[in-house]
Design a protein around this nucleic acid. Structure first.
Length: 499
RNA sequence: GGGCCGCUAGCUCAAGUGGUAGAGCACCUGCCUUUUAAGCAGGGGGUACCGGGUUCGAACCCCGGGCGGCUCACCA
């Protein structure tokens, strides 16, 4: 093809590919090596007043998101991570070759432009393009400009396109980064040390969940992807690291839905010489900071709820919550009695067998949904808290709390169990439940018990589900809206014949 | 895993009861020197998720499969 315009016919992708060839014919490398920009779009907009428009050109780089050709001129919009600005080019202000090259550009291409800023007669700040470079020619067209990319499957599978065209999606992930940064800063400011612990673990623990299993060839052993990093962090407390934390990608081989992804991010932190009341104060401080820095106030909106994060938060003892819901004191109730209550209320008790299972069901169904405003649920039954320290006053309870917001459990904390003998007994009790057919349980981690036998100081521990935290602060209804690449079935084999 | 819904051009969506697939955006050609959902005129583009069946004829009806969404169950 020689100098002739792109021939008609073929898919848009083919037509755009032909433009790449045409650009090369014109001596343009459509995939540049670098571009020196003088500022971002947002900076250009902010600095308009300081610049002497006629003399001081700016160089900006970004994606063409709109083009409006007018024969001898052309308007368009250039978008970078900071914002969007109009560009304007005239054929009497650039070379004929440059204008021809410009006319080969499409929406979606990445370009660098240089020129002074001016205001059009409608008052819009615009770059008067005197020179430009093709930085990357896009072969695939962007989604349509009015409706953008709607299809959720495509949005998740091609998140890069979603990010290009849906500004609110982009903003959510910027906020996620800022949230993590704020949490990290608060921890560092309080003397916590950021550490990294194994993702591949020979024994999984620290939570009750089904793990992913993998295999190490050289060692010829099965390893588990961690379901929590708790037991490793507390080993570090034993080792004398008084305050540690880790943003831990955890993996749980369970169902997926609006609030569960197989891999998710958990913050865990541990502070020697704290108990759970210290941790409660810390959580309130952290959320107050997040509210101020991320939301700009203590009030947030989540779905239909307006939530006030200002401390102090309501404190609700676990069995007080159950008493309010059932009218009965269940502290002494055994498994059979609890089952009876659950069945009376038409709750699904399938698969439940232990006292802890029934308590979990009753609390989850009757109490949790009402915990909209921030609430610390405190002092859990010992059966469902194998790593928490016995309550200093109440028999059968542990010093544990979970902060609830908008009906979501956003964290989990306790005065950590540091008595090795008690810990071993708890592990064994749990293991027995396994033999009894309980849904999930722990293998005994002998090395962890051994670590406790070297002496762990009294310690307060806290876990916060980062994904859910981000959901709350960004008013996102699905965990998939706050995870860049949520787990999907592979595209491979789509449309294939059934097997 | 169960239930309901969906899958048509690159994207967003149409097409009473089965009759041989359309629009807008995007792309191509022409015109257009301050437009902005630019405009006007012309044009190209389809494995209808995949496979089978019924039928003279299937985007549409039936069966099987795939993927997704919502929801229930389980979990954080």
């Amino acid at each position: 093809m020689s100098g002739t315009p792109t021939p008609p016919g073929g898919s848009e992708r083919e037509q755009r590919a032909a433009k790449v060839a045409r650009l090369r014919e014109l001596g343009v490398v459509p995939y540049a090596y670098r571009f020196e920009r003088t500022c971002t779009v947002a900076q250009a907009i902010a600095r308009e007043g300081e610049l002497a428009p006629a003399e001081t050109p700016v160089s900006l780089a970004g994606r063409l998101v709109a083009l409006r050709g007018h024969g001898h001129t052309s308007f368009g919009h250039l978008k970078d991570a900071s914002g969007k600005i109009q560009i304007y080019i005239r054929d009497d202000e650039v070379s004929a070759r440059d204008f021809e090259i410009f006319r080969l550009l499409d929406v979606g291409d990445i370009v660098g432009v240089t020129g002074p800023l001016f205001r059009t007669k409608t008052g819009e700040l615009t770059v008067r393009v005197k020179g430009f470079e093709v930085l990357s020619k896009a072969i695939n067209p962007l989604p349509e400009k009015w409706h953008g990319l709607q299809d959720k499957e495509l949005r998740y599978r091609r998140r890069y396109v979603d990010l290009i065209v849906n500004d609110d999606v982009f903003a959510t992930f910027v906020l996620r980064s800022r949230i993590v940064e704020t949490v990290r800063r608060h921890l560092l400011a309080n003397g916590f040390l950021e550490v990294e612990t194994p993702i591949l673990q020979p024994i999984y623990g620290g939570a009750l969940a089904r793990p992913f299993v993998t295999h190490h060839n050289t060692l010829d052993v099965d390893l588990y992807l961690r379901i929590a990093d708790e037991l490793y962090l507390k080993r570090l407390i034993v080792g004398g690291m008084d305050r540690v934390f880790e943003f831990s990608k955890d993996f749980r081989n369970e169902g997926m839905d609006r609030s569960h992804n197989p891999e998710f991010t958990m913050l865990e932190c541990y502070a020697a010489y704290w108990d759970y009341t210290d941790m409660m104060r810390f959580v309130e401080e952290l959320f107050t900071l997040l509210a101020r820095e991320i939301v700009g106030g203590t009030e947030i909106t989540y779905g239909e709820h307006t939530i006030n994060l200002a401390p102090p938060w309501r404190k609700l003892a676990y069995f007080d919550g159950l008493r309010e819901a059932t009218g009965r004191d269940l502290r002494e109730a055994d498994a059979a009695a609890l089952k009876k209550i659950a069945v009376e209320r038409n709750l699904d008790v399938e698969g439940a067998s232990s006292r802890g299972d029934f308590l979990d069901i009753l609390f989850g169904e009757l109490v949790e949904p009402g915990l909209i405003q921030p609430t610390f649920v405190m002092d859990y039954p010992i059966e469902i808290s194998p790593l928490a320290k016995r309550h200093r006053k109440e028999i059968g309870l542990v010093e544990r709390f979970e902060p609830y917001i908008a009906g979501y459990e956003v964290g989990n904390a306790f005065s950590e169990l540091n008595d090795p003998v008690d810990q071993r007994e708890r592990f064994e009790a749990i293991a027995k439940l396994w033999d009894g057919g309980a849904r999930e349980t722990h293998p005994v981690d002998e090395d962890y018990v051994r670590a406790l036998e070297y002496g762990m100081p009294p310690t307060g521990g806290l876990g916060i589900g980062i994904d859910r935290l981000v959901m709350l602060l960004t008013n996102s209804p699905s965990i998939r809206d706050v995870i860049l690449f949520p787990q999907m079935r592979p595209e491979e084999g789509r449309g294939g014949a059934g097997e």
